[in-house]
Design a binder for these strands. Structure first.
Lengths: 302, 302
DNA sequence: TTAATTTCTTGCGTAAAACGCTATATTGGT
DNA sequence: ACCAATATAGCGTTTTACGCAAGAAATTAA
């Protein structure tokens, strides 16, 4: 049973004249006749009573006419619903840290919504270290992440901005701060060896920090391993240790008065923050569009 | 848009695997792929996001899935309303030899399909000797088989036709034919003792032949034991030995000019060919109906 | 790291389905 | 009695859908 057959039948049920319906439908009379005949065979009973001059609907035919009208109407409604080809609709599933929601994504989302009002954004938040994993698992379409040192082959990365990775120490008078001050050498460097560190549990920034420790020959005294830069900043502000976090996280945390960012000679390279997604997912017009808007929003100058 | 395309799409939306849906729908993977592609072209947008290993529904796809479910439900409701409620649907699983497919089953299937268009036939082919085993194991609903000498108690057998079991020898001039001719006695009998035999490996015809050898006091020189009468006929035609096969297999084999059927005094009784099924399975209205149609088709005069 | 496997797409040739043309039969109007 | 209108069915052609096979890509196994 197909839509065209329904249309043919509806026409015949209106005109009660195969020839007339053939004209209206731009089909031969025999084609109209056979189309209706096929419907009858599929249903197993006649829909029309015919002789060589006239046609009448049977009761089954009247029943079928109602069905055909309704079915066509639903088909047309579906077409209208799906049919705004030039207006992308659908969903984009995003993953990022709470901070990145407003510090990285907000301008992108503002621009995107202006041009794609029909798109629905599904936002999931958590440790930005999990973003790449979620993309690879197909749980989200796009994640905000630091650029990994080794990019999985099927992943695309759109760099948006750089954020310095800052060492931060408690601003308040506390044991940890005293230790940091005591560890400062005359040249301004800090001997970090004995100072309790609060480090990222996983992710790009953990790898960057591990690399830095190795390069500097520092064997840190790790006090805690924590998921999420925001939590690191919070713990440092409480005087529990020192840590690192992207500057944009520190600034967004509302704790800039409670942690002091420390400039370190030969410090960590800046974190390149951007969007990641599966290359294949970007074949989707919707995601491609989102990607493009993000690139345009930040200018892709990184 | 038609009902079958909707069904194909619904299956794919369930399995998210074209290969799996192809299996379930008894279609090739490429046909499934193309059917979905045609729907997408008709709607003007993708319903699935695909890569070479996986498939996901787009939001349009989810929308379409709802439409398809609803549309199919309405079609089925219409069917019920118009009185095909008592029309049996479902599947019948058949087992038979290749030859029996067209020589025994074809008229049954033609008649059955005319009256039961909604029933789906699953046909498995192989050595007819395996039919009864498969029925007893529950792997198939109905098998075409020779009538066994001892019927398992839970089995039913519907005799359809008799086919003479023919001795056949190579028609071409070859060593085996020379042996047969040399073995003919003045009264027309053949001393089979020294002639290489190609015998059925198993099944009713093997039992019938074994019984016959015993009754005739013949100790045959068995050259090969072969699964399937078709293969026996093929080997005889190649001059590898003599054999037996139901006449309908010989005639269907396309090798009637290459094997000679030999009339033998006190030869084998004819093979009663029919359907077998578990008695309990015949409680199913569907199988009962199939059984009845088979009986009517062949007139059950055997 | 390489090979094997799985999955989906597409070209190609074939089969099936749908079509238009034409002939036919029937009925009603003139 | 003749003509026109109507629907059906045979026939040949066109269109559509199919399975097979090859290919590409991703994942898994060795």
């Amino acid at each position: 049973m197909d839509i065209r057959a329904l249309s043919v039948f509806l026409s015949v049920s209106d005109t009660l004249n195969f020839s007339r319906s053939g004209e209206l439908l731009h089909m031969s009379v025999s084609a109209v006749s056979r189309t209706v005949r096929r419907i009858e065979e599929e249903l197993g009973q006649p829909l029309l009573e015919r002789d060589n001059r006239s046609v009448r609907l049977t009761s089954a035919g009247r029943e079928f006419r109602e069905y055909a009208r309704h079915s066509l109407a639903e088909w047309q409604q579906l077409r209208r619903k799906l049919g705004n080809e030039d207006e992308l609709a659908g969903e984009v599933s995003l993953y990022c840290s709470v901070t990145a929601t407003y510090s990285v994504l907000a301008p992108i989302l503002e621009a995107f919504r202006a041009t794609h009002p029909a798109v629905e954004i599904n936002m999931h938040t958590g440790d930005q270290a999990d973003g790449i994993g979620r993309i690879l698992e197909g749980r989200d379409d796009v994640a905000v992440s630091g650029r990994p040192s080794q990019m999985p082959r099927r992943m695309e990365f759109l760099p948006l901005l750089e954020s310095p990775l800052q060492f931060c120490v408690p601003a308040a008078d506390c044991a940890v701060r005293d230790m940091v001050e005591a560890a400062e050498t005359s040249s301004g460097d800090i001997d970090w060896s004995g100072i309790p560190f609060i480090v990222p549990e996983r992710g790009i920034t953990k790898e960057m920090l591990d690399t830095w420790f190795r390069e500097q020959g520092i064997r840190p005294r790790i006090y805690a391993q924590v998921a999420g830069h925001e939590a690191i900043v919070a713990m440092v502000s409480l005087g529990l240790g020192v840590g690192i976090a992207p500057q944009l996280v520190i600034e967004a945390s509302g704790m800039t008065s409670r942690v002091r960012q420390v400039a370190v000679r030969d410090g960590l390279p800046p974190l390149v923050v951007g969007l990641c997604s599966l290359g294949l997912r970007l074949a989707s017009p919707l995601l491609k569009s989102f990607w493009d808007v993000a690139g345009q929003t930040y200018g892709s100058s990184v």
